[in-house]
Simulated scan of single mutants.
Amino acid sequence: MKASDVKTMSDDQLSDELIKLKKEQFNLRFQKAIGQIENTARIRQIRRTIARIKTAQGERAKTGATG
């Protein structure tokens, strides 16, 4: 997911997407520990997308609080 996609999403959509990604990240960690993970690059993609979502939420909170 690109940053432009994240910026166009509503607050509720961002929260839902964040929960979904956290669950997927949790499952991938278990797969990695067991040795069943197929796409190791997906861990990195999820981690970065989570960071993008949290950044967007922080920016919205900051502008909402001061603006």
Rank of each mutant, 00 (worst) to 15 (best):
Ser10Trp: 07
Thr55Cys: 05
Val6Lys: 05
Gln13Asn: 09
Thr66Tyr: 08
Asp12Met: 08
Lys7His: 04
Arg52Glu: 09
Gly64Cys: 01
Lys23Arg: 11
Thr8Glu: 04
Gly58Leu: 04
Glu24Leu: 05
Met1Asn: 01
Arg52Asn: 15
Lys20Ala: 04
Arg44Phe: 07
Gln36Ala: 10
Lys32Thr: 02
Gln31Ile: 00
Ala51Ile: 06
Thr55Asp: 12
Ile46Gln: 10
Ala56Phe: 12
Ile53Pro: 07
Gln25Pro: 03
Arg44Leu: 12
Glu59Pro: 00
Ile37Glu: 02
Glu59Ser: 11
Asn39Trp: 14
Glu59Asn: 10
Ala3Ser: 10
Lys2Cys: 06
Gln13Pro: 09
Leu14Arg: 03
Leu18Pro: 00
Ile34Asn: 12
Asp11His: 06
Asp16His: 03
Asn27Thr: 07
Lys54Asn: 07
Ile46Pro: 01
Ala3Gln: 04
Glu59Met: 15
Glu59Tyr: 05
Arg44Gln: 12
Arg52Gln: 14
Ala41Ile: 00
Leu18Lys: 00
Ala41Glu: 02
Ser10Val: 00
Lys7Ala: 12
Ala65Lys: 14
Lys2Thr: 03
Ser4Val: 09
Leu18Met: 01
Thr49Leu: 10
Ser4Pro: 07
Phe26Val: 06
Thr49Ser: 14
Lys62Asn: 11
Lys2Asn: 11
Thr63Gln: 14
Thr8Cys: 06
Phe26Trp: 12
Ile34Val: 11
Gln36Cys: 04
Glu59Thr: 13
Thr40Tyr: 14
Glu17Ile: 04
Ile50Val: 07
Lys2Ser: 05
Ile37Arg: 10
Asp16Tyr: 00
Ile53Phe: 12
Lys23Gly: 08
Asn39Arg: 09
Leu21Cys: 00
Ala65Met: 13
Gln45Ala: 15
Asp11Cys: 04
Ala51Asp: 13
Gln57Met: 00
Ile46Ala: 04
Asn39Pro: 10
Ala65Arg: 14
Met1Arg: 00
Ser4Ala: 13
Gly58Glu: 07
Thr63Val: 06
Gln13Arg: 08
Phe26Arg: 01
Gly58Arg: 08
Arg52Met: 14
Ser10Thr: 05
Lys20Gln: 01
Thr49Arg: 01
Glu38Ile: 09
Met9Cys: 05
Asp12Gln: 10
Ala56Glu: 05
Ile43Cys: 09
Thr66Leu: 15
Asn39Lys: 12
Lys20Val: 03
Arg29Leu: 03
Arg47Ser: 15
Gly35Met: 02
Arg48Ser: 11
Phe26Pro: 04
Thr40Asp: 15
Asp11Gly: 08
Ala65Val: 15
Met9Asn: 11
Glu17Gln: 03
Arg60Asn: 13
Asp16Asn: 05
Gln57Pro: 06
Phe30Lys: 10
Arg47Cys: 14
Lys2Gly: 11
Lys7Leu: 02
Gln25Cys: 01
Leu28Val: 04
Lys23Glu: 03
Lys62Glu: 02
Arg42Gln: 07
Lys62Gln: 10
Thr49Gly: 09
Lys54Thr: 08
Thr49Asp: 08
Ala51Tyr: 10
Thr66His: 09
Phe30Trp: 15
Thr8Ala: 03
Ile53Arg: 00
Ala51Asn: 06
Ser4Cys: 12
Asn39Gly: 06
Gln25His: 15
Arg47Asn: 15
Arg60Ala: 14
Gln25Leu: 15
Lys20Gly: 08
Ile19Met: 03
Gly64Ser: 05
Gly64Met: 01
Arg52Asp: 11
Asp5Arg: 01
